[in-house]
Computed example of a mutant assay.
Amino acid sequence: MSRADAAPGTDAAPEAPARRTSTGRRALWTGIGAIIVFGLAGLVQYLTDAVPALAAGTWFGDIAESIEYPIYAIALGFLANAVLSLCGIRDRMEAAFRTELFIKIGLVLLGATINFAIFVKAFGPAVIQAVCLIAIVFAFTWWFAGVLGLDDRLRALLASALSICGVSAAVAAAGAVRAKKEQLAYTATLVIVFAVPSIFLLPWLAGLLGLPPAVTGAWIGGNIDTTAAVTAAGTVAGEQPLQIASIVKVTQNALLGFVAVLLTLYFTLRVDRRAGAGEAPASGAAADAGAPRPRAWAMVWDRFPKFVLGFLFASIIATVLGATMDPAVLEPRLDAAKELQVWALSLAFVSIGLEFTVSSVREAGWKPILVFTAATLVNLVAGLGLALLLFSSFEF
């Protein structure tokens, strides 16, 4: 009997064990990657405690005291990235590098350490700053990217990432405007490349300028693109700047769904309609341009970062317990939440270093890099002005 006459499915039978083997290998490499991530996070905890003790009384003692755990975590992540890449096995472990998941867990736990009264007090200025910064940075990025002739969909991704919350905003915008995966990869890479130096640059600049803690936190939260990097920079700057930076960032994150809806409406009513009228569609348009789009409010909820609700809920619960529970009973539990928060954030910061790829930077091209650089400078200046205007008189 010829192969053509074979019963349907006969040829597929040998493929099933191969698929199972492939799945098993992926699971094995993911498990190994998870062990590495958790092992590095454990090493971060050890170094944070041991280095200052070992360096006490030496010239390095004061410096060691000022080094916070995010610095160790990111440095170890990049070092492990280099080693694993040289060995040719980093890509096999990518599924274990879950920066977004770890940072969301860490931020929900961080909410338990912030008195809800502080959130209520900072919410008004945070909303004003978020709306103004999103409008200023988005408009500038959209305009400048257009001047350089970038595709409308890539312009939307860059503007969303720069003005709201980095990779998460770029992903939401990509779904709203139906961008190419390559465009999303360019944008995500640029977000990481620009965010990592900001973790150390902004706290240093804030100290150099003598900014108060609340202004420092508002500047960090409003300017650094990724929530993970905001948390790292806030930790470096101090406990009070971290609280304000987190509040400002989650406020920006909460506006993500509304921006995604506006982008959807713009591309539906103008860009896609223009293409349907005879103009060539913008490069990067997805093949399913005619597919139905979700309703506006459904998209708002779909894009809304749910961890923001967890952050608020944890803050409310901790505040209520603080007012009703014996401190001797409550404090150990809050300390445990703080310890878990540090672990979750350490895992996120290690993953930042492990996720970085040099090849993506080379593929991005010079025009998006120029747009990102110019818009970042605008964000820094506008963000500092708004932080000074809105948070100079803030008291904890």
Rank of each mutant, 00 (worst) to 15 (best):
A170L: 01
V236I: 14
W59R: 15
R26G: 14
L107I: 15
G33S: 03
A348K: 03
A344N: 01
A382N: 07
A159E: 03
G383E: 00
A214S: 11
V171E: 00
A34V: 09
I105M: 12
L28G: 10
A170C: 02
I89A: 06
G146T: 09
A82Q: 14
L162M: 11
G276S: 09
A173I: 08
I105H: 01
S163V: 04
G106H: 07
A179R: 06
T319P: 14
A277P: 00
N81W: 09
V108G: 06
A139S: 15
A126F: 13
A277Y: 00
V193Y: 02
F258E: 00
F60Q: 07
A375Q: 01
V350E: 00
F123K: 04
A296M: 14
R333P: 00
V51Q: 03
A169S: 10
G39R: 06
E355R: 15
I89H: 01
D11E: 13
F267Q: 10
T10A: 15
A169M: 05
F140C: 09
P14W: 11
R19H: 12
T30K: 09
W142L: 12
F78K: 09
P70R: 03
G24T: 11
K180G: 13
R274Q: 07
V230Q: 07
A206P: 10
S246Q: 08
L354F: 04
F140G: 10
D91R: 15
P212T: 11
E331N: 15
F194W: 13
I244W: 10
K338L: 00
D225F: 08
P70L: 05
Q341V: 01
A13P: 01
P368W: 13
G57Q: 11
K249Y: 10
V127K: 13
A27E: 09
G57Y: 13
S283I: 10
Q129S: 15
L150S: 07
G77F: 12
A41M: 04
I199N: 04
T48N: 08
A18I: 13
S85N: 14
E395K: 15
V259L: 15
A233S: 11
T231P: 00
A374Y: 00
L84F: 14
A364L: 04
L43K: 01
L370M: 15
G284Q: 08
E94M: 14
L110W: 08
A344D: 00
L79E: 04
E339F: 04
T319G: 14
E15M: 14
R293K: 14
G39S: 06
A323Q: 14
